[in-house]
Nucleic acid binder design. Structure first.
Lengths: 248, 248
DNA sequence: CGAAATCTTGAGTATAATCAAAAACGGTGG
DNA sequence: CCACCGTTTTTGATTATACTCAAGATTTCG
């Protein structure tokens, strides 16, 4: 009903709506936000550390990652972004970007001017809260990643990352209970969990041998969710979803 | 001029004011926020993961840490909190806490009801932005910690943490250019950088031998800031301070 | 089909963990 | 002021997890 202008907002509107239901006028205001839609091919930076953006991006489809590069050129992926995510929403209130965002697959990205975002926030306090909340969940995920990388061994870390991705993909309808398409390379996982590619490869072989995951190309199947959760020391609280979504 | 009610707010007001100058009415509204002040002794939880808080805390003095505990009981410190910080401000929009906050030294803590915070945000949009921004900087720090722990070796990690603490302590007047009081034990540093206590001890000895730091009790002196920065691969951009504060 | 990217394997090495115990420090009470 | 206690720091020896390097196999995609 009225999603005429930007049906593309669906992943975002659906996400915000699932947390606290939007009123019609709020939903409409979101759908009316101006958005420049761009297709970006795999392995390209969407934004770069050091930028002073005047717009934020909404990932409409594809996989992306938030990353930083150290002085000696090593890349740390600090988070994965999926449809409905706004990986650089923080630039709305922080002038300089302290991280880059890059595509892992071809992506459809919508750019929304900060001006329009400030405007909608001013008129709809509940939307301000919803956006703020999104950035707080991002922070909660970073906290969990600090813990994951700092305290768990590689095998557990890897299982944990699989759990997080499964839950988040399910929440936006990109995974069913048991499987999903996960076009992330072992080298990318390595940069995400702070391990070498070789080690990730060996860990994955062990996980397959233990029946935690089954892979066929980029398709991943989880034969037993509870076992994977236990192996990954995974508690979905930090994703701050509604119970129904986070459970499984 | 009117700081009669809660001069205790000074560390917070000063911080917010330093980012974008507050108008008198905004400053006054902040000073009028109701706040219950409590002294908490060392090693106590201020809030605990799983709580559903109805208030947020403002650290008035002392050192605290944000931490999580893994399934097998290991503690990861995800961040240090100093005077002026609100380490659980996220509970304003996230119902369940996904981390705990504990004191590292005796602390003076002010508890501010969420109701009052929502109220001031509703009336002063610029204060909403300022609080939101604070949580965005927290997130930026978590991102940097992910990178620090994931990609740097222990020696560099440790130097990096020293750099961050020095810059932040300087910003609130708790450090001069060269030294500060840093009552954090090696075991706590270990939980922060994801290393063992023994290894932290050896790294610190190496840092002392290399002249990066000089310690006398809890007093830390940095003989050569530029050298420490280089050793810690430290770029203060992620702290999103004004140039003047972040430089040094 | 062929080139490039990704995944896999093996061998040798390094960083850091663990365990255990001793030394130094800091605060307290006599 | 000193003796005592618990905490923190330090040391040594051993072990483990994970890295690096290098090459070969497999998959993907044009």
């Amino acid at each position: 009903m009225g999603n005429t202008l930007h049906p593309e907002y669906n992943p975002l509107v659906r996400k915000l709506d699932s947390i606290f239901p939007l009123r019609d006028d709020e939903r409409q205001a979101l759908l009316n936000l101006p958005m420049q839609i761009v297709v970006i091919k795999e392995g390209q930076d969407i934004v770069r550390a050091g930028d002073h953006p005047s717009r934020s991006c909404l990932l409409l489809s594809g996989f992306a990652c938030v990353y930083k590069v150290t002085g000696d050129g090593k890349r740390q992926i600090a988070g994965f972004s999926i449809a409905g995510d706004m990986p650089d929403l923080q630039s709305l209130h922080l002038q300089v970007l302290d991280n880059s965002v890059s595509t892992l697959t071809p992506c459809r990205v919508g750019f929304i001017p900060h001006e329009a975002l400030h405007d909608i926030c001013e008129r709809y306090p509940r939307i301000t809260s919803a956006f703020w909340r999104e950035t707080l969940i991002d922070a909660a995920i970073f906290r969990e990643w600090v813990t994951n990388i700092g305290q768990r061994e590689a095998y557990t870390r890897m299982a944990h990352v699989y759990c997080e991705l499964m839950v988040r993909l399910r929440a936006v309808g990109l995974a069913d209970d048991h499987s999903c398409d996960l076009p992330i390379t072992q080298a990318e996982f390595a940069d995400a969990i702070g391990a070498s590619t070789v080690h990730v490869n060996r860990v994955l072989q062990e996980m397959r041998a233990n029946g935690l995951i089954v892979t066929k190309g980029t398709q991943v199947t989880i034969p037993d969710w509870e076992t994977l959760k236990r192996a990954g020391d995974f508690d979905p609280t930090y994703l701050h979803m509604r119970k129904a979504q986070a459970a499984a």
